[in-house]
């Protein structure tokens, strides 16, 4: 098996991209932990994130994160077999529900993050 197997076909490359999303997301969560621990330096020591560099980093992470959400929730619809009254629920219904849950969860978190900023 040549080690560059994943560069030889589009589908393989997209698979590797999907797996790679873990790294940028991990870095961003580590940053979040760092930001939270910054609260310990008190009202004067805490520096809120405002730099352009950080925004650029977040834009990149957001792209990977969206790709992860899209692929993972779509594949979850393939994996889950749910039977109601002996009838198999079609996978597109499961995928639709997953994406619906994503929208609701995002709205709730966004609301909390913005509402309590007042």
């Amino acid at each position: 098996m040549p080690l560059n197997w994943w560069t030889r076909q589009r589908h393989y490359f997209l698979y590797m991209l999907r797996e790679f999303t873990a790294l940028p997301m991990a870095l961003w969560l580590i940053w979040l932990l760092y930001e939270i621990s910054g609260l310990r330096s008190g009202a004067h020591g805490y520096t809120p994130p405002r730099s352009g560099l950080f925004v650029a980093f977040s834009v990149v992470v957001l792209l990977f994160s969206l790709y992860h959400s899209y692929t993972f929730l779509k594949l979850a619809g393939v994996i889950m077999r749910i039977k109601v009254l002996d009838r198999q629920i079609p996978s597109r219904v499961i995928v639709f529900t997953m994406f619906g849950a994503w929208a609701v969860a995002s709205a709730v978190i966004a609301f909390v993050l913005i509402w309590f900023a007042r």
Partner: peptide, 9 residues
């Protein structure tokens, strides 16, 4: 398996 998915294709 890490779900490459090419088998099904």
């Amino acid at each position: 398996c890490s779900f490459v998915g090419e088998c099904s294709v």
